[in-house]
Design a binder for these strands. Structure first.
Lengths: 333, 333
DNA sequence: TTGTATGCGTTATCAC
DNA sequence: GTGATAACGCATACAA
């Protein structure tokens, strides 16, 4: 591949001049500039991003660490980031971390080796200290969907406790008393906080939430099916189900319908995330809107700001709150 | 950030020695090796991937160009690629190209500037010649979901004509005669080929497919809704619908159900892709299995092979064929 | 076994 | 306006 040197030779000028026309440098004669440009396209010149990154000490690229591309939730997240990197002419370096300590660490470190200047990280497996240390090292390090007090200005997160409360309150206000919960089996902070919120709402309503009414499974449709099966198997009586996310809710609905249990006639159900699925399953799913895309865009924006040395004013915080989206899966009794 | 030089100074050895221990080079004394290693972790040394790429002329990264991360189809594709890059310890550089000539071109060129050695490209907007030229320039250039005869050994693609035939044949064999088609409004090759296949099956069955029975819309759920609305508005009689993809099928089902038209009682429908959606909508969608993930993995594998100078034997080709997945959305009449 | 020197493709700082 | 030239961080051929 042609280098700047080849161009210089071909054009009969020096490296420096070529470099200037590439970067629209100021002091170049109009005719030399044209000539060099012409030769560049002729020879199919393409600047070498690696060399450039090496000398300028910046990479014009943003690293992304997320758990699992297959999950529509993460796909949405990635999309949110993509909208801003595109606007800023920044490349995305993507690493998947599958919610395992080792893999997440590896993902971040690889990105660091590439000297990305900004980084949006979705980490659930790594502990606070490790992440704080990374934040210290990398100016453009931003966490998404996680809150760590020590680096609160680097966190873009959702208030999951509020979310849990919200869904429980809606179910209770709709007249339900026997309410089951299907949650994620991954003992990360999200499901725990959501259940905390649910518990708060239950207590205020004078209800209790026994452990037997909570089923844990993988946070996908299959997990939703399994969780409902277990609930049915245990003969737990319930007219309401609070799901960890829309995928689980959809799996649960699917399974209930296979058992000819009408939704919302016999059982009401509330999801979480408001991914596309929620709108297109039958009955349409009542759920919590999780503004992932907006949050992801914010996180990318933020990472780029920090990287360029223009951090937002001190004391700002990036907490988002879910809202309820009422559709058809909850019956008022 | 600490460089190889810092380590050398701290350890009292030369650059070369440090470089050797980093790359597990052969001729290093055991105790110096240990000492250097220790210092490296102490100082938190991280090799600079840019510098390394510059000198070795290889980047250990694979570029990916796809249309739209939000689409579950592409998310699956990305996931397929990710499984193999992870195994090969290769970074993913991701660019979205949104089916526009300019954007797709830009995406590829940015990747090229980063000197990725391998590249999996999903391009629908660029013309054959442009892509052939790229393939000539980049050894590890592989196309996915597109077939160009001149570079057939760089194409991993699905036989869309066969797919179209297959879905039409199944619908016809189930006794349907009035069959409508909802297709993608993007005039890329895929929808055209699928309709070609459908036409072939129709002709063989002595049926015809008037243009009025085909509706074009965006290839998503919303498009599916609109397409069905138009069909209903035009009072086209149909008992069967062939959809461009599962998303459109799902939108169509949704809209039909809103009009209290029973599926498959009144209208049968067949999708395309077999994304998760198909399994979880109600009724479960009969559709064509599109082995995207497998194909994406193959494409990544292939790109890496070509890049490392070990191309598969000549004359091989990577055509995949869709198969039908019978579920609940088709009624035999 | 270890060290020295050179170059990868750029940008940037000087001179001219 | 233009041209040498020194970095950037690393790998490697060649010396020692």
């Amino acid at each position: 591949m042609a280098t700047i040197k080849d161009i210089a030779n071909a054009a009969g000028v020096s490296l420096a001049t070529v470099s200037r026309v590439i970067n629209n440098g100021p002091k170049v004669g109009d005719k030399t500039r044209e000539r060099v440009k012409k030769i560049m396209v002729e020879m199919g010149y393409r600047p070498n991003a690696n060399a450039r990154a090496l000398v300028t000490q910046k990479s014009a690229s943003l690293g992304v660490v997320l758990a699992e591309l297959l999950d529509p939730f993460f796909a949405t997240l990635a999309h949110g980031i993509e909208t801003v990197t595109r606007r800023h002419n920044v490349q995305i370096l993507m690493s998947a971390g599958s919610i395992e300590k080792k893999t997440e660490l590896k993902a971040i470190e690889t990105l660091l080796e590439h000297r990305v200047e900004a980084m949006v990280v979705h980490s659930k497996a790594l502990d606070d200290d490790t992440l704080i240390e990374f934040a210290r090292q990398v100016p453009g390090f931003v966490l998404i969907n996680r809150y760590i007090p020590e680096i609160s200005n680097r966190c873009v997160w959702l208030d999951n406790v509020a979310g849990g409360r919200l869904m429980a309150e809606h179910m209770i206000r709709s007249g339900h008393k026997n309410i089951a919960v299907i949650s994620s089996r991954y003992q990360i902070v999200d499901p725990i906080q959501r259940i905390d919120g649910i518990r708060q709402a239950f207590e205020e309503a004078g209800l209790s939430l026994p452990e037997s009414s909570i089923e844990y499974a993988t946070p996908d449709q299959e997990g939703g099916e399994k969780a409902i099966q277990n609930l049915l198997a245990k003969s737990i009586p319930f007219t309401g189900v609070l799901a960890y996310n829309d995928a689980m809710a959809s799996g649960a609905m699917s399974m209930l319908q296979d058992h000819h249990i009408d939704i919302p006639g016999k059982v009401s159900i509330i999801g979480y995330d408001d991914v596309l699925l929620a709108k297109y399953c039958r009955p349409k799913l009542t759920t919590l809107r999780y503004p992932v895309e907006m949050m992801a865009a914010k996180a990318a924006e933020l990472a780029l700001q920090y990287a360029s040395g223009q951090p937002p004013e001190d004391g700002v915080t990036f907490k988002y709150t879910p809202t309820i989206v009422k559709r058809e899966s909850v019956l008022t009794i």
